[in-house]
Design a protein around this nucleic acid. Structure first.
Lengths: 198, 198
DNA sequence: ATTCTATAAACAAACGTTTGTTTAATGGCA
DNA sequence: TGCCATTAAACAAACGTTTGTTTATAGAAT
């Protein structure tokens, strides 16, 4: 079967459990979701889940790891492509928004719930997040170095501003809204790169 | 006693409990923090807390309500002041960052943990949040209407972009960092209003 | 006949909260 | 100064509930 990215893809009990976990972990948080909540959402008794999963935390590990991987896969190539820093940053922002739109629930978990990973799984997730942030740092550095970006911006703060705006998108983005995810991404890129001032 | 805003102000057991709750709710989340965690942080046994608080949720209610109030108090006057939309927006962003810096732990709770309020307290908190967001919507609308902001930005998306960047600041802002909170705010405003492009 | 999957029931541990009691410091009065 | 009444705060223990997880068992599908 080809790899799929949207929500509710795949089939079988395991996929149903993962999708339910994305929804509930996203809405109520990992610590705010009980295994009984999860079982009710799937339509099964609590103990039945354990025929398909190893533990509650294993679900979080899988959702976060796959999610970060999805973002890196979609965005990293643009960060190191041949275009100008401006073109690259624009493409990265659009790609990020498109991945969020693919599955906002999962994105919510990726950006807000990773901190509840146990000691064994946390370092790897943090490292992957840093790889992701590194993509944006690289492009902003290049832009400034090449004189295409403002010389008087603080690079660290510019990157945090961009990432903050992006990290918040799963809170409000509606994949079925009037604007397509790509259009939303283009508009966000416009705002972040040229500002709101006329 | 004059009203104070920074962390660790006030005294007495009640204030100590509130400060501990801000720290733990911010770091571990509301549902991820047990009353025993809280008691340990305060340096007391779990039951002892209930001589000073009504319930765990009452702590969240107080932190969120006071926090939102603090943001509105600091930012709203700028939104409806006499200056140009550009001046007003810049002042709002700076004020927001300064309030975050006052107490990043509390800000983390205000922006991430409000959803765990019970049915009785949630509507009021949502309404206050909307008042706060309304300040930014108003200024962007004015800016576009007066031709001072770009005509081809999507106002809704511009506001979400700005608020997203601001809502994320408590995750990385260090009040004791090299740059003062005001300087950070000015730099963020610069990025959001003029973009990163030279 | 074997393999899956679900059920029903139970487990130990942790949850938020309440209770009855002890301790420590405070202020008035002799 | 010495004594007592008051108060504030914490302790120690337990309450009933919910947590994540395991077990034994039974029906369905290959």
């Amino acid at each position: 079967m080809a790899e799929e990215h949207g929500p509710e893809t795949g089939s079988g009990p395991r996929t149903a459990i993962l999708n339910a976990a994305m929804r509930l972990f996203g809405k109520q948080g990992y610590t705010g979701t009980s295994v009984r909540d999860l079982a009710t959402e799937v339509g099964v008794l609590p103990g039945s889940l354990y025929a398909h999963i190893q533990s509650k935390e294993a679900l979080l590990v899988e959702i976060v790891a796959d999610g970060i991987h999805r973002f890196i896969t979609a965005v990293e190539p643009h960060a190191y492509s041949a275009g100008s820093p401006a073109e690259r940053l624009r493409a990265m922002i659009v790609a990020h928004v498109e991945v969020v739109a693919e599955n906002p629930e999962r994105s919510l978990v990726v950006f807000h719930q990773w901190r509840f990973l146990g000691e064994e799984n946390l370092p790897a997730a943090i490292e992957r997040r840093q790889v992701y942030e590194g993509c944006f740092i690289k492009v902003v550095e290049d832009g400034v170095a090449q004189g295409l970006f403002k010389q008087d911006i603080n690079q660290r703060i510019a990157v945090f501003t961009i990432l903050g705006a992006l990290n918040w998108t799963p809170e409000w983005l509606s994949p079925s809204g009037r604007l397509s995810p790509r259009e939303v991404g283009v508009l966000m890129a416009e705002t972040l790169m040229r500002g709101v001032l006329a």
